[in-house]
């Protein structure tokens, strides 16, 4: 029972992490049909910005609780600034071109942004443990857990519910769905598609930044942390179905829970879990578990 509870919590915690980092990727893909490789850069920039200011504020003697505000602010600032620059400066000029060229452009951007981080923040890692230290720890199922890690589950739920409400209960959701289903049709119905694209890209970037900013207090924020995230979030999105929020949630849960089970019961196979799930899904359902419907055009 104790082990079961621990596996469940570990799994949910890791799933939440996966969901937060992959939600932005899948939203951008769903609406804009762009596989945004520089999603990893949003994550890294979010982490760096949060860690930098949490450290600075702490040095100035300000209360550690401000850290949570910084995390949210960092995600929004990174998302808006980077999202705007990249979408308006580069991607906007490419929408008429091949989708694959756009992927390549985001790959180029990823390389550039990685090195700009090095130039801006230096090679020395940043530590921003204050928010995690503030929330202390509790004992659950015979294991001490940090409350900060558990709040991750709440954040992921919040993001998931927020996306669901936005898509299904607002006028915005209707517009988004129209654009997702058929861009040309959306334009002809008078939807300002370029504006929808800009907002979507910024939204996705904010989610990417939030992933990094929220994880920052638990890790040593060091160069190169964006690369691993791309692989993980891509795996989740492939399993769940590219462009589907529900798919990203289910994909995260499957991978997260199976991985936790493996770590506890059979650590030798833990390493294969992500890729085994991916391989099985690819063989039986190459579009992913929850692939959105596609109109067939001639």
């Amino acid at each position: 029972m104790e082990t079961f509870l621990t596996i469940l919590l570990d799994g949910l915690q890791f799933s939440s992490y996966l969901f937060i980092v992959s939600a932005g990727l899948t939203i951008i893909f769903g609406v804009m049909k762009i596989l945004n490789v520089c999603h990893g850069s949003f994550y890294a920039w979010g982490a760096y910005t949060a860690a930098f200011f949490i450290g600075k504020f702490s040095d100035m003697g300000l209360p550690d609780a401000l850290g949570f505000l910084i995390i949210i602010a960092a995600a929004i600032v990174v998302g808006v600034v980077l999202g705007l620059i990249i979408e308006q400066g580069i991607l906007k000029h490419m929408y008429h071109r091949d989708e694959v060229l756009i992927v390549l452009a985001t790959f180029g951007l990823f390389l550039v942004l990685e090195d700009i981080i090095l130039i801006a923040f230096g090679t020395d890692p940043y530590f921003a443990y204050q928010p995690m230290a503030l929330l202390e720890s509790v004992e659950m199922g015979g294991v001490i857990r940090d409350v900060y890690g558990l709040t991750l589950i709440g954040v992921a739920t919040f993001v998931a519910v927020g996306c669901w409400l936005l898509l299904n209960k607002t006028k915005w959701g209707v517009i988004l769905k129209a654009v997702i289903f058929d861009r040309e049709m959306g334009i002809s119905m008078g939807i300002n598609v370029p504006f929808v694209y800009t907002l979507t890209f910024i939204g996705g970037a904010i989610l990417g930044g939030l992933g990094g900013a929220y994880i920052a207090p638990t890790i040593s924020v060091a160069p190169g942390l964006g690369t691993e995230v791309i692989v993980l979030s891509f795996a989740v999105v492939v399993v769940g179905g590219m462009g589907s929020i529900a798919g990203a949630a289910i994909g995260s849960l499957i991978i997260g829970l199976l991985r936790a089970l493996a770590v506890h019961e059979l650590p030798q196979v833990e390493l294969f879990v992500v890729f085994a799930v991916m391989a099985i899904v690819l063989v039986f359902r190459p579009e992913g578990l929850f692939a959105p419907a596609k109109p067939r055009k001639i």
Binding site: T6, L9, G11, V143, I144, T218, I219, H264, L271
Partner: peptide, 22 residues
């Protein structure tokens, strides 16, 4: 028999730490 071998440069050790604790 449950020694852990996470991938290098992963940075997230939540489950591993639980397993080591138990």
């Amino acid at each position: 028999d449950k020694f852990q071998f996470p991938k290098v440069f992963v940075g997230q050790y939540g489950s591993e730490i639980s397993a080591l604790s138990l």
